[in-house]
Amino acid sequence: MSFVEIRGFGKAYGATPVFADVELDVAEGEMCILLGPSGCGKTTLLRAVAGLARPDRGRLVIAGRDVTAASPEARGVAMVFQHYALFPNMTVRQNLAFGLQQKRLPRARIAEKVDAALALMELAPRADARPAELSGGQKQRVALARALVLEPRLLLLDEPLSALDAQIRKRLRDELKRLQRETGFTAILVTHDQEEALVLGDQVAVMNAGRIVQAGPAREVYDRPATRFVAGFIGDFNLLEPDAVRRVFGEQADHAWAIHPEAIDLLPTAAEHGGLTAEASVIDVRIHGPVLRYLVSANGTELKVDVLNRSSIAARCPGDTVRLRLDRAQVREVA
């Protein structure tokens, strides 16, 4: 039995389904990512787990207790919101103490727990600041601390990083991972950012149009997308229809091929090679830091090719003719 079990969850607003037939298992200490495009129902699903939205159908079990009908505060969950939802009239310390005060803990015990949470999140120097005086990253750390100080059985995070700028987002992402390692909390995190999902997720559940289309370890979802949608949403696949496969690689295919950009090698035209090959010409090249992203055209089909950005490999220029090489084992067939 899993730590969190979602069984047959469904919800509709009138005739419009928000999510349907959702089955999800989250193991204790695991971070599960709900990944999907905006409007796919992932946030409402998270709110239903929190008790802030009521599912029309289905059952929810957290830590062996059926909490389907329980009120939000009786579920032992805590939530971090996209826009922090800090109490603007309270200091950081007061924000952290608020939930503990509602539990009627003794004053000394509250102070102790709040101090520990401040230390954990490195917020002690800002303990007496109000939210308006904090940066976005600090606000979200306060929101995280306010949730963790309650020692919830399950932590819910609703796009916690999406309101932050890129650099802070990466730092907070790493910090989130460190916290999870240190405190071992169980979490469900909602995001539309596939990189965030792969970095943070022990398990990734990809949602589309209110349904979970694939759930599994991050590695597996990245390597073996179950559907064309997952392939398109995760990992920036090259998606080749059967006739494109025939044109480019001269192979017969029953289904479309999904190929990771990094699975294709870029070789000089004269190089020795095994595997599938094709002639192509470079259309464009962009530097993505450690990776060079080539856009090449092979027999009229555009392909993305990622190559490590090493100075030892001479970069090719638009107009160059290259040879593409691909291991057949790297190809995922998707329906």
């Binding site: 802030l52 939000p72 939530m79 109490f87 608020f98 939930g99 309650l150």
Partner: peptide, 24 residues
Amino acid sequence: LRVQELLDAGHLLGAGDLVIARRV
């Protein structure tokens, strides 16, 4: 204020609407 979010956050922290209204 994002009142709805504050109410949601408060509920999850175990506070009722009246407490949130009075304290926040």
